[in-house]
Write a protein that binds this DNA or RNA. Sequence first.
DNA 1: CAGATTGTTCTAGTTGCACTAGAACATTAG
DNA 2: CTAATGTTCTAGTGCAACTAGAACAATCTG
Lengths: 120, 120
Amino acid sequence: MLITIDPQAKTALFEQVTAAIRTAVVTGDLEPGERLPAARELATSLEVNMHTVLRAYRTLRTEGLIQVRPGRGTVVSAQHSRDYQPLRRALAELVREGDRVGLSRDGLADLVRHAPGATA
Amino acid sequence: MLITIDPQAKTALFEQVTAAIRTAVVTGDLEPGERLPAARELATSLEVNMHTVLRAYRTLRTEGLIQVRPGRGTVVSAQHSRDYQPLRRALAELVREGDRVGLSRDGLADLVRHAPGATA
DNA sequence: CAGATTGTTCTAGTTGCACTAGAACATTAG
DNA sequence: CTAATGTTCTAGTGCAACTAGAACAATCTG
């Protein structure tokens, strides 16, 4: 798995880690059951504090994307072997439309974050 | 125009204001040429500092959604009388898919924020 | 021109969160 | 038992958001 983060970016470090893994799961780069690097290990390779990685893991666990257990490590949830294809298509479509009308990624993201619906 | 913000929310105040107006423009609740409340005025009604509102206006101006000039006030850009229909459809579709696989709004928003594409 | 309105800019202080750091602990695998 | 891994706790640092007040510039109206 390839994760790169930018310490200079405006987005928080833990959010970058979270987003990278989430994207990998949605795109299928990370398969269900696949094991993620140990927190300390990933932290070292990213030159980041362990707590930052753990926060990312915690966030993803809350979302149900990964399963985390002391001593055993962290793996991609099997229940999430869902079909992400429609989601990916919708995502691509939204990004395309956003570009067309000139909205930035942040603007688009904001639009999604505050969008009405089931999860609200 | 109706804007409400939640001081207790985790999202920044200026971002809430920004998102509310952006959404209003995209949904057509705010029409091109329509005038926004004066910064001081809106700040008072939202019980927020003027600078917070001004930051939201500045952000939206950068996105090209509104036009801002001293003495004249703030209006929705006419150039942005674009067709937002496809964008709205894509947005609704993404939210629907996100709910289906159990992704939160924040998770979805993150996915969009870090999505590849033209604007990158 | 004079005055009112509105956005711009500047300074300054407070608060909360992200991040870092180190350590002790619980759980699991071998 | 030992090693590996996530959990929890304490603590300190830095930065961004927010607030507050004031002076300034541009525009419109009378």
